[in-house]
Computed example of a mutant assay.
Amino acid sequence: MTRANVTRRLAHAVDSAATKHPELKTKQISPHVIRHSTAMCLLQSGSDPCEIALWLGHESPSTTHMYVEADLAMKERALARLKQPEVEQARYRPSKGLLDFLRSL
């Protein structure tokens, strides 16, 4: 199947779906958008970026890293996994011996 054929078939599918979902008529839907959206869904569901790279046919995961960007929800989940440090923050106070040594330099 050629790229042009894929684009035509997708346009036909969007036209058919727009009868029930008219908001699709205002969207720019292309094979690239479908590909990117699928890759993002795979990433958000926890798939390994290396697996996504294979699925997309990329030669290396670094290509996928540039292609699949983390969205805001993923960033929020990553921040939510962080824990507050269990130690109280305190100002460092050097010992008298260390201060005497530094003064002697």
Score class of each variant (00 low, 15 high):
M74P: 00
A90V: 13
T64K: 03
I52K: 01
R91W: 08
R8S: 12
L10T: 04
I34H: 10
E76L: 08
S16M: 11
V87N: 09
Y67D: 10
E88P: 00
P49H: 11
M1T: 12
T19C: 08
C50W: 11
P94I: 02
S95N: 07
K20C: 03
A80M: 02
E86S: 06
T19G: 08
Y67M: 12
A13R: 03
E76H: 12
R81F: 13
R93V: 14
A73Q: 00
M66N: 15
T7W: 06
H58A: 02
V6K: 02
T7R: 15
R91F: 04
M1A: 08
A53L: 10
P61W: 11
L56A: 01
R93Q: 09
Q28T: 13
V68L: 11
T2H: 04
M74L: 12
L105A: 12
H58E: 02
R8D: 06
C50E: 14
S47L: 05
E86G: 03
A11P: 10
A17T: 01
K96P: 06
V6N: 09
A70N: 01
A4N: 10
V68H: 05
S45K: 08
P22D: 06
L24Q: 05
L98V: 06
H58V: 09
Y92C: 01
S60A: 14
G97Q: 14
L56D: 04
S45T: 09
S16W: 09
G46E: 11
Y92H: 07
L99T: 01
L105R: 10
V6W: 05
S30C: 03
